[in-house]
């Protein structure tokens, strides 16, 4: 059997997922033994035309990280789908939109205006905006269309597997690679490189009573290192977040932000966490409850930090 053909592509994302591939450490040598990387523009000099030339389904596994923000991302998603046997949504951006997905709370015009005209440091006296086509001296230039909406990979093409995380932790990336290389593939559509429960399953903090009388922003308290952060009033998304990361943030005394997406049986991570949090606010008086909940200053940013594009509503009203 020949070496596996692997591809990595970076769409609308920060690039952290590409770095997390390197976090597998020395295992990268094992990867080099069993696989050839046939496309990884971030790491080496590959061109789109290289992919176009490949026969269909000749890439064994393609790790596509990043959300679909514009035409180029969509084009490459479709192209890589055609050329790959297995297409993996790699990382939170591809799985659920992640931080780029927060742009769905705005419209295209809002974003372009802000970036090209309104920020304090913009110096654009003529109000030049990006155009799809523009004639210059040398000829006609084209820019890929910037969509009005961020979509996930699965909302764009058919996806085989999902590796969640922002970024997926190194050990899990290695486990996922091993799974995919093993030949014993899980059912299509599975989440791999992660757990099958909520983060609380991995978290070692002590639990007493899930009752809170005040919600704190992270900077307002130094939490007790032994006790559940949610019980201390911090907005920990752990109960509504898929396990697999080893509770790294919690171990560093920071509440989970939810980057591994919802647990297996949940449609909408933000709605579920909103429900759970509201349910444990331990006051009966309406005024008091309102006061406590007012400390959730930005519900979307808290509950849907990573998952707007994959939530039930997917975007703010156009």
């Amino acid at each position: 059997m020949g070496k596996l053909k692997l591809a990595f592509y970076w769409a609308a994302s920060c690039g952290g997922c590409e770095i997390s591939v390197l976090e597998i450490g020395e295992h990268i040598l094992e990867v080099a033994e069993i696989a050839d990387i046939v496309f990884w523009p971030a790491a080496m000099d590959f061109k789109y035309s290289d992919v176009e030339k490949m026969p269909d389904r000749s890439i064994d596994v393609c790790f596509y990280n990043g959300a679909v923000r514009m035409l180029e991302n969509e084009h490459m998603a479709k192209l890589l789908r055609a050329k790959s046997k297995i297409l993996v949504a790699f990382g939170s951006c591809a799985c659920e939109g992640c931080i780029p997905g927060l742009a769905n709370l705005k419209r295209r015009e809002d974003i372009l205006n802000r970036v090209y005209k309104e920020t304090p440091s913009t110096d654009n006296p003529d109000g030049v905006m990006p155009l799809l086509k523009v004639k210059v001296l040398e000829g006609e230039l084209e820019l890929p269309e910037f969509y009005n909406q961020v979509n996930t990979l699965a909302q764009t093409v058919d996806v085989d597997y999902f590796i969640p995380g922002c970024p997926p932790v190194g050990e899990q990336v290695w486990k996922a690679i091993q799974t995919l290389a093993s030949g014993k593939l899980p059912p299509k559509g599975s989440f791999i490189g992660c757990g099958e429960k909520a983060l609380c399953d991995e978290c070692e903090l002590k639990r007493a009573e899930k009752k809170i009388k005040k919600i704190y922003r992270n900077y307002e308290v130094i939490p007790d290192r032994e006790q559940c952060l949610l019980e201390q009033g911090l907005l920990c998304m752990g109960p509504a977040t898929r396990s697999g990361c080893g509770a790294q943030c919690v171990k560093a005394n920071m509440p989970c932000r939810g980057c591994y997406g919802p647990p297996p049986n949940v449609d909408d991570q933000g709605a579920k966490m909103l429900s759970a949090l509201s349910s444990i606010v331990d006051v009966k008086d309406e005024g008091e409850a309102k006061k406590i909940l007012a400390d959730v200053v930005d519900p979307v940013g808290t509950f849907y930090m990573f998952g707007v594009a994959n939530s039930l509503l997917r975007r703010a009203k156009k």
Binding site: E196, R207, K210, P239
Partner: peptide
């Protein structure tokens, strides 16, 4: 699916 978070016990 249960991770023992304890929210149901309280509620």
């Amino acid at each position: 699916l249960c991770s023992g978070c304890g929210i149901c016990e309280e509620v």
